[in-house]
Amino acid sequence: METFVVALTVFVLAIFVGFEVITKVPPTLHTPLMSGSNAISGITIIGAILSAGTQHTTLTAILGTLAVVFATINVVGGFAVTDRMLQMFKPSKREKV
């Protein structure tokens, strides 16, 4: 129960942080916000690496490796495409904002 309550505390507090931070993102950047937040949800990659690396059974190794592939596409694709998009956003030359 102890571990669960600690984990739940972290979960709930992080949701509040998320709401605070995300509400400040302007609509102009909502698409990069989605792809960028999507990329960080690929954090599940660390669980995937452990399963693929500890190889307790053949099945867990296979599941882990598959998960590494999916999560890496998510992480690399997400950050790269977000970077590509964000670099396109430029202010006008006359009025630097």
Binding site: V12, A14, I15, G18, V21, I22, S37, N38, I40, S41
Partner: peptide
């Protein structure tokens, strides 16, 4: 991280 993205 999961809850940040969930909130977003």
């Amino acid at each position: 991280t999961g809850s940040l993205v969930g909130a977003s």
